[in-house]
Amino acid sequence: MRRNLVEAVFVPLFLFLVVFPVVALLFHLNPEGIRRTLADSFFWMSVKNTILAALAAAALSLFLAVGFGYYHLFKQHSYFYRLANLMNDLPIALPHTVAGLALLLAFGRKTMGFLGSTGLAFTLTAVVLAMFFVSYPLAARALAAAVDRMEKELIEVARTLGDTPVEAYFKVALPTMGEALFAGFILAFSRSISEFAAVIMFGGNLPARTQVLASYVFTKVEEGELGMAVTASAFCILLSLVVVSLLWLGKVGKQRA
């Protein structure tokens, strides 16, 4: 009876609140909007910027996440670990407009003016940093979860054989966390391609320069080009499905192995 009640509530709410908005968007696709969007060079530049910046942000996220994994394994009682663990959660709770403003003040012309008239702001590097800021916590949590699941006896054996903590981490721990490394990268990448607020605050929305898919959709809605906005949104959905499929295939491959 309880299971039937859960199904009776969950299924219609899930279909209405999660599936229906996506279907509604796809039903608004029209040939003219598709044609104009695919012929728009700024659209393809936004696709290029999105993928390149998201890949760079995901790589940087994974690089730092590996460092956090080391601290999570060996340095949980250190003050720096406690600070890092706290800051890992902050970007998740922080409004992303605030994150964008913080990045702008930290890396804008007042502090990084020697790099250019705007510092790092309103460049593709700014887009990467904005994406990294919001996606890094996902990669860090993926590595921390893998550390929690691994057999600590392997580390203890390596330590008794004379390995330093760093050697044990890179020679023993990391090779067992291939799935977590892959998942951390994919999660960071998927979060990066969806970011809007921090990107537009710090990187701006300069067509062909710092414009990404999310800001392209926003621009087309502002311009009243709903057909083009819908087409670009459908492309985002397709790209997201590809990324989610990669994550799913990775899990399936792990289970079969």
Rank of each mutant, 00 (worst) to 15 (best):
E225D: 14
S245K: 08
A39E: 14
S46E: 04
T160G: 09
T160S: 15
A102T: 10
Y169G: 02
R82K: 15
A8S: 13
E153I: 11
P165Y: 00
F202C: 03
R82H: 10
M177G: 04
L17G: 01
F185M: 08
A139G: 06
A180V: 01
L64G: 05
N205E: 11
V157H: 06
T164N: 00
I51D: 00
A53N: 09
M150G: 01
L29G: 07
A99P: 05
V230F: 03
I92V: 14
G119C: 02
N30D: 12
K251Q: 13
A121K: 05
F235L: 15
V19K: 06
F218L: 06
V11Q: 05
L239D: 10
I193W: 01
I186C: 10
K220A: 08
F74L: 12
T118G: 02
V9D: 01
K251H: 11
G69N: 09
A99S: 12
A39K: 13
L247P: 07
S240P: 03
F20V: 10
T118V: 10
V23K: 13
V134T: 03
R256H: 12
L129S: 04
G67S: 06
A39D: 13
L161S: 13
V217W: 05
A197I: 08
W44H: 08
A59G: 04
P137T: 05
D148P: 04
L64H: 06
G203R: 12
V23G: 14
G204M: 01
R2V: 11
N205C: 10
L206Y: 07
F68R: 03
L238Y: 05
A53G: 07
E153V: 10
Y79Q: 15
F80M: 14
M1A: 11
S194T: 14
A106Q: 13
N88S: 14
T231S: 15
F189W: 09
V217T: 06
A214G: 03
V66C: 05
P137M: 04
G67A: 03
K220R: 13
L181M: 15
S233M: 00
A180L: 03
R149N: 12
V172Y: 00
A180P: 04
N30I: 10
E222G: 06
T123Y: 08
L115K: 08
L94Q: 09
E222M: 05
L90T: 10
F42S: 14
M112F: 13
M112C: 09
G203D: 10
A130F: 01
P21L: 07
V11Y: 06
S46K: 01
G224W: 02
G227L: 08
A65E: 00
V217G: 00
I193Y: 03
M112N: 01
L55H: 02
V172Q: 05
L29K: 06
L138M: 12
V47G: 09
G184Q: 04
A140M: 14
L249E: 11
Y136I: 11
T164M: 02
M177R: 04
A65G: 12
A84L: 15
N4D: 11
M201H: 05
V157Q: 02
F16K: 07
P21M: 10
L249C: 11
L38S: 04
P165H: 08
